[in-house]
Deep mutational scan, measured.
Amino acid sequence: EDEVKKIVKRLIENGVDDEQIKEIVKRQGVDERIVDKVLKELK
């Protein structure tokens, strides 16, 4: 989960929008619920 957080944070800093972040992270095989949780925490 910490790995996911790092990735998502980097994507947000690069101006990637939420939908794209979800797609990218899902392609890495991460559960969507984890992605949603991380996005909420970082906003």
Rank of each mutant, 00 (worst) to 15 (best):
L39Q: 02
D18A: 12
L42F: 06
L39C: 03
G29L: 03
D31I: 04
I7E: 07
D18C: 06
V30S: 03
L39F: 06
R10E: 15
G15H: 05
D2N: 09
K37P: 01
E3T: 09
D36R: 06
V35I: 15
R10S: 14
V8T: 02
V38G: 00
E1D: 09
V38H: 02
V30W: 15
D31N: 08
K37A: 09
D31T: 07
N14G: 10
E32W: 11
D17N: 13
K40F: 12
E41K: 05
Q28D: 07
E3M: 12
K43Y: 10
E1N: 08
V16W: 15
G29V: 02
D31H: 08
D17V: 08
L42T: 03
D2C: 05
D17G: 13
D36H: 07
K40W: 14
L42H: 03
K26D: 02
E32K: 06
Q28C: 11
E32N: 05
Q28K: 11
V16L: 15
I34C: 02
G29P: 02
K5N: 04
I24G: 01
V30R: 03
D2M: 10
K9F: 09
K9R: 14
G15T: 02
V38W: 11
K6A: 14
Q20G: 10
I12H: 08
K6S: 12
E13A: 14
E32V: 12
Q20H: 11
D2F: 07
R10G: 14
K6H: 08
I7P: 00
I21Y: 00
K40N: 12
K26A: 11
E19P: 05
K37T: 05
E41A: 11
K6V: 10
I12T: 04
V8E: 00
K22N: 02
E32F: 07
K40Q: 12
R27I: 07
L39V: 03
D36V: 12
V4Q: 01
G15S: 03
Q20S: 13
I24Q: 06
D17I: 07
E32S: 11
V4D: 01
K6D: 12
R27G: 12
E1F: 14
E1W: 15
R33M: 12
V4G: 01
V8S: 01
G15P: 00
K40H: 12
Q20C: 05
L42R: 02
Q20A: 13
E41R: 04
Q28Y: 15
G15D: 04
G29N: 05
E3H: 10
K5S: 06
R33S: 14
L39S: 01
I12W: 14
